[in-house]
């Protein structure tokens, strides 16, 4: 019946007030408090040969309102002090901001206990697995966030791990998350993983040879990140205000703040 379908039919009978059920539907129905909201914003992470970059915009929204123009989404994790000067891991969270904050604090507490017990910082791969279990522990009342973890692996190579809200995770070369993920990710596929790039004149059809993938140098990645966000700001209302970029290398973590359009 058309009246029960999501989309009303264009020709024929549509929803009629006369047909509104006059009695309660069988079974209990609850109109419950909704514990989630979407605070917008977008994040992006790219791993290089000897560095990893995680970036996020700093806008925090509620519907069409901008709550604040500066709410960081990228955090240092696992330092020995609250100032995180000697942190070795980066975490970005986007989605429901309160869950993101709670998740960040939980993971940081885990890293601090690890340091206390073992006298050394947690490795990125260990932290990545731990984050997955933390998310899965709340499988039936999830942290509503898209988390991305970054750092350097045991060989000093840049590492990026991305997660879904219930803890599925994978190590990747690059990942975009949040409101403008669908705008940024195809751009990254093309510019980082060289998707749909072929060597000119190498053949026709299946004979075409793909351009060889090489890790990008840091300065190019930084420009790429800025371009990605400038484009996202143009087309997505929940993205803008400021760009926070954290770059982790063997020398530590560097933070850069760049302006984005505020409109």
């Amino acid at each position: 019946m058309a009246m029960f379908s999501q989309n009303p039919v264009l020709n024929g009978p549509n929803y009629s007030f006369a047909e509104v059920p006059q009695h309660a539907v069988d079974g209990l129905r609850e109109h419950r408090f909704n514990p989630y909201t979407d605070n917008g914003g977008s994040t992006l992470a790219i791993a290089g040969a000897d560095f990893a970059i995680i970036a996020g915009d700093t806008r925090l929204t509620a519907g069409y309102s901008i709550n604040t123009r500066y709410a960081p989404k990228v955090f240092k994790i696992g330092g020995s002090t609250s100032s995180q000067d000697d942190a070795n891991i980066l975490l970005s969270v986007v989605g429901f901001a309160a869950d993101g904050e709670a998740l960040k604090e939980r993971l940081d507490a885990v890293c601090k206990m690890y340091r206390y017990r073992h006298g050394k910082p947690m490795s990125v791969s260990a932290c990545a697995k731990r984050l997955s279990t933390i998310l899965y522990q709340k499988r039936f009342f999830p942290y509503y966030v898209h988390a991305i973890l970054g750092g350097l692996d045991e060989d000093g190579t840049g590492a990026v791990y991305s997660y879904d809200p219930v803890g599925s995770y994978e190590r990747e070369q690059c990942r975009a998350g949040g409101a403008a993920a669908s705008l940024i990710m195809p751009f990254l596929d093309n510019q980082v993983n060289f998707k749909n790039q072929y060597i000119p004149g190498s053949g026709v059809g299946h004979e075409l040879q793909e351009r060889e993938r090489v890790p990008l140098p840091r300065n190019e990645v930084e420009v790429l990140v800025k371009d990605a966000f400038d484009s996202a700001v143009e087309r997505h209302i929940e993205v803008g205000d400021g760009l926070q970029m954290m770059i982790i290398t063997k020398d530590g973590i560097e933070e850069r703040l760049l302006p984005l359009k505020k409109d």
Binding site: T37, N67, Y70, A71, F96, A98
Partner: peptide, 14 residues
């Protein structure tokens, strides 16, 4: 600011 969901943020004006 803090709201019923636990969302928090700061700003020069709120």
């Amino acid at each position: 600011a803090a709201d019923l969901l636990g969302t928090t943020f700061t700003s020069p004006s709120l």
